[in-house]
Design a protein around this nucleic acid. Structure first.
Length: 857
RNA sequence: GGCCCCUUGGCGGAACUGGUAGACGCAACGGACUUAAAAUCCGUCGUUCGCGAGGACGUGCCGGUUCGAGUCCGGCAGGGGCCACCA
């Protein structure tokens, strides 16, 4: 009896797969294609087991589909541009490229350790000029087609690091690295005009039927469609004669008591030229941070411009126009009318500045004459009042009516507004894809001609100072204008790294294509049939990719609109956290558990066990894959990752859990090894008849094939694992006595070895070989269940008396209701439970339950 | 503040469309084997009453619909997620 030695077996099979180039994919139209992709990693250093779940899940799907006869594409690459590389370069006085490629090398060997069925011939990093040159080409294509804009926008500016910060890099109003108070600045930036596609991106969500509802909802909310109206107010001012506002509640127009415009509104800006106090007010508005807490605490502030707006329906009535800190220039028209009775912000504002509060929608059951609003605005349904021609209407009818009247008079229009803003892609950073533009004083921004692509990053940049190394490079940015030949300046901003990840899945279809994509390959492989990644990308990455593929279609680089037909968002791997007595984080391997106490290994120092959290480098609650592979083997790790929790939920990594998985691996090996000596040879012919026991085990085997196949199909890995355990339990109890029993045992073991193959491929190969196969399990087809053996012919029904379970009965499947009723009523226990009461009715659910309802005394 | 989701034994979790709650695994406990340990094997394992057969209770809490509710509806509590001054 030998023990299964994962340390020897796993590298052996990995090499065999590689030597045979098993996972190399080519276009093969004789089979259905299946593209499975995990969100590609950022090469941050080393991977830990927490990263592994994502790739293992994809690998299980890839191996399962391959066995089922699909032509599978399962590639891997690197999302390699980004700030951490630049920060590391600053700290280590090195170069981002050096750091990045070194990390890629480390992480690639770590990933290979997991035994992934990846076609490595398609590997690339987004920082390869061979990748980003195509991105530059597409940027220019999009520019020509009007999908790129250059415009001014407000950005978070870190005055110490001299760079723009993303919103998530601003913590409590300060830069996350420098700690400096972040300023709002206006910068001219490049944008992808994603908002032009808002409606299309929104309606197409309905068709993404293999995406989680949660993600679809998040995308819908992010796009944020609102129906409303734009209304033009006439101003009583010689210079500024009108003001256009957006509202979703035109029905409340008669409750208007003021208008408010954004500090960034053109009228505000114009008035500020001659009003020092307004300049101060605008500055004050800018100071309020845009953090959640700041917004919560922020007071509504207004500045009376002195302008008055004529009410569109009430002759002689006019409204004051304020500049207000809560009105955003980026949404709608940057101007609103305030109806305090029916909007909380307007109410807060009105109370502060003593403006009238006139209810115009009255909840049912309230009298219009007495209904009033105190400190809480009424935003519910009701009937219109104090509203002239709308009186008595429902909110919905009133909206339609007032919009028709406004349109009739040419002072309003029904409008749909989206929350989605254009995608600003300029970053004042070195380690990103250069934006292929040349700025010429005479010609303006000029595209870099195709023949000059790629615009590559200069290697001799310096990283010792904050700010953009490209901007301070002595020569790189100095070029001549491609149009007029005069001296000009290169664009020194690089692209947001989300651009890089918006089309990598298309590049994988032919990673060596001459153009951005190879149409034949893209049209064959896309869409991605199964995309797998973290929920944290539910909005940005997935929305940007959906936009980008649409743009690629317009530019002729792709033939479809939706890149990801199926999406699965997997949960994280978590682990306990540990701190020593000085409050320093400890790695799990530094902690030893003895007699229920946690101690620092090699000492008697107590360790504080902290909460279970997502594995992360900063909290040191990570487990390196090498350590797991060495002690237990990666199959045990893979099995544990698939068995513990449903895949969409978080899963806690524990020593006990991986121990259990290791025992499973040993148990399968033992089962096969112990049965082997008496089994008939591989491929021996099926006996003519079987014993009762053999038929029973064959039924279980075939039934398990069906159940596990269905579970894997539906991403229910934890249930597939449970089925396999049940199968193994049944096999352990089965003692073959005859030749035909032995044949049934072999059949069951072969099925078992194939069923576990996607999860524990190395163990499967080794058992497959042990069973006498001469080819690899990776080439073997998925087992097929015999319908004659999966058919169930008897079922156990529960018998309820008055809704309580009192008995159960075994009956032939699909027995008519009448017969089932008679059988149930013949049972002694049932009669005893009925206890002589009159039977009122009997409810029979075929093959499930008999419920006898009696007359209650 | 808005929208959404979740809550089942000591733990992870099963339970198809309203039809036998707790599959399977982990942990724990008792036993066998062993000089001993590991490994392995056998058994117990929601709470409670009963010697037993068996009974009562039980899916966060309160109520409803139903012959029947973990599952559907209303309310509450706790936990989590996304967005956030979006007019």
């Amino acid at each position: 009896m030998s023990r299964y030695n994962a340390r020897e077996v796993e590298p052996k099979w990995q090499k065999a797969w590689e030597d045979a180039q098993v996972f190399r994919s080519i276009i093969d139209r004789s089979k259905p294609k299946y593209y499975v992709l995990e969100m590609f990693p950022y090469p941050s250093g080393r991977i830990h087991i927490g990263h592994g779940r994502n790739y293992v899940m994809g690998d299980v799907v890839a191996r399962f589909k391959r066995a089922k006869g699909f032509n599978v594409l399962h590639p891997m690459g690197w999302d390699a541009f980004g700030m951490p590389a630049e920060n590391a370069a600053m700290e280590q006085k090195s170069h981002p490229a050096k750091w990045t490629y070194a990390n890629i090398e480390t992480m690639k060997s770590q990933l290979k350790l997991l035994g992934l069925s990846v076609d490595w011939s398609r590997e690339f990093a987004t920082c390869d000029p061979g990748y980003y040159k195509h991105q530059q080409k597409m940027f220019l294509d999009f520019l020509r087609l009007g999908m790129v804009a250059r415009k001014e926008s407000n950005v978070n500016w870190d005055p110490v690091d001299n760079t723009v910060l993303a919103n998530e890099q601003v913590v409590d109003g300060r830069g996350w690295r420098s700690g400096a108070l972040v300023e709002q600045r206006k910068l001219t930036q490049w944008f992808f005009r994603i908002s032009d596609m808002a409606d299309e991106l929104l309606t197409a969500i309905d068709g993404l039927d293999r995406w989680p509802d949660k993600v679809r909802l998040m995308q819908r909310n992010w796009i944020g469609r609102s129906e409303g109206a734009r209304v033009t107010f006439t101003l009583t001012d010689a210079k500024h004669t009108s003001l256009e506002i957006f509202t979703t509640r035109p029905d409340t127009l008669f409750g208007a008591s003021f208008c408010a415009i954004s500090p960034d509104h053109p009228i505000t800006q114009d008035l500020a030229k001659s009003n020092k106090k307004l300049v101060d007010f605008i500055a004050e508005c800018k100071r309020t941070g845009n953090t959640a807490a700041a917004i919560e605490a922020a007071e509504k502030l207004g500045f009376d411009t002195g302008l008055r707006a004529k009410h569109p329906f009430i002759a002689g009535h006019s409204l004051p126009v304020f500049v207000a800190n809560f009105v955003l220039m980026e949404y709608g028209l940057g101007a609103i009318f305030g109806c305090p009775a029916h909007d909380q912000r307007d109410l807060d504002f009105a109370r502060k500045y003593n403006l009238p509060v006139i209810p115009v929608v009255v909840p049912t059951g309230e009298d219009a004459k007495t209904f009033s609003v105190g400190t809480e605005a009424f935003t519910g349904e009701g009937l219109l009042a104090n509203s002239d021609f709308m009186n008595g209407m429902t909110v919905e009818d009133a909206k339609k009516d007032v919009i028709a009247k406004l349109e009739g008079r040419g002072i309003g229009k029904k409008t749909i507004t989206y929350r989605l803003r254009d995608w600003g892609i300029s970053r004042q950073r070195y380690w990103g894809c250069p934006i292929p533009i040349i700025h010429c004083l005479s010609c303006g921004p000029v595209p870099v001609p195709d023949r000059d692509l790629p615009v590559t990053l200069p290697e001799d940049a310096t990283f010792d100072l904050p700010g953009n190394p490209l901007d301070r490079h002595p020569t790189w940015k100095n070029v001549v204008c491609p149009t007029c030949g005069k001296p000009a300046r290169r664009e020194t901003d690089t692209m947001d790294t989300f651009v890089d990840s918006s089309w990598y899945f298309a590049r994988f279809c032919d990673a060596h294509a001459e153009g951005p994509t190879n149409p034949e390959a893209v049209n064959y492989w896309l869409p991605v049939d199964q995309y797998i990644g973290g929920i944290e990308h539910a909005i940005l990455h997935l929305l940007y990719s959906r936009f980008f593929v649409r743009a690629m279609k317009k530019a002729g680089h792709a033939g479809l609109s939706e890149p990801f037909a199926g999406l699965f968002t997997q949960g994280m791997i978590t682990h306990e956290t540990y701190k020593d007595q000085d409050g320093k984080w400890l790695f799990p391997e530094e902690v030893e558990k003895r007699d229920g106490l946690a101690l620092k290994r090699g000492t008697n120092q107590a360790v504080a066990i902290g909460p279970v959290e997502k594995m992360s480098k900063s909290k040191k609650n990570v487990v390196p894959p090498e350590a797991v592979a060495d002690t237990y083997g990666v199959d045990a790790a893979r099995w544990f990752m698939m068995s513990d929790s449903p895949p969409e939920r978080d899963s806690e990594w524990s020593e006990a859990g991986i121990d259990g998985a290791w025992r499973f691996v040993q148990r399968v090996w033992r089962l096969v090894e112990e049965a082997l000596p008496k089994l008939p040879g591989f491929g021996s012919s099926k006996p003519d008849s079987f014993s009762k026991e053999a038929i029973a085990i064959r039924r279980i085997a075939h039934r398990t094939i069906d159940l596990v196949s269905e579970d894997l199909e539906k991403f229910r890995f934890n249930k597939a694992v449970a089925r396999i355990f049940e199968f193994i339990n049944a096999l352990s109890e089965f003692t073959p006595r005859s030749d035909s029993d032995q044949w049934a045992m072999r059949e069951a073991l072969e099925a078992l070895v194939m069923l576990i193959n996607p999860m524990v491929p190395h163990l499967s190969e080794e058992c497959w070989r042990l069973l006498g196969a001469t080819t690899m399990a990776v080439h073997a087809p998925w087992p097929k269940a015999d319908p004659a053996l999966t058919k169930v012919d008897s079922v156990t029904l529960a018998i309820q008396i008055d809704g309580k379970r009192r008995d159960e009965i075994e009956l032939p499947k699909d027995l008519p209701a009448k017969a089932a009723e008679e059988a149930a009523l013949a049972r002694e226990g049932v009669l005893k439970a009925i206890d002589g009461r009159v039977i009122k009715k009997v409810i029979i659910v075929p093959n499930r339950i008999v419920n006898i309802v009696t007359e209650q005394k």
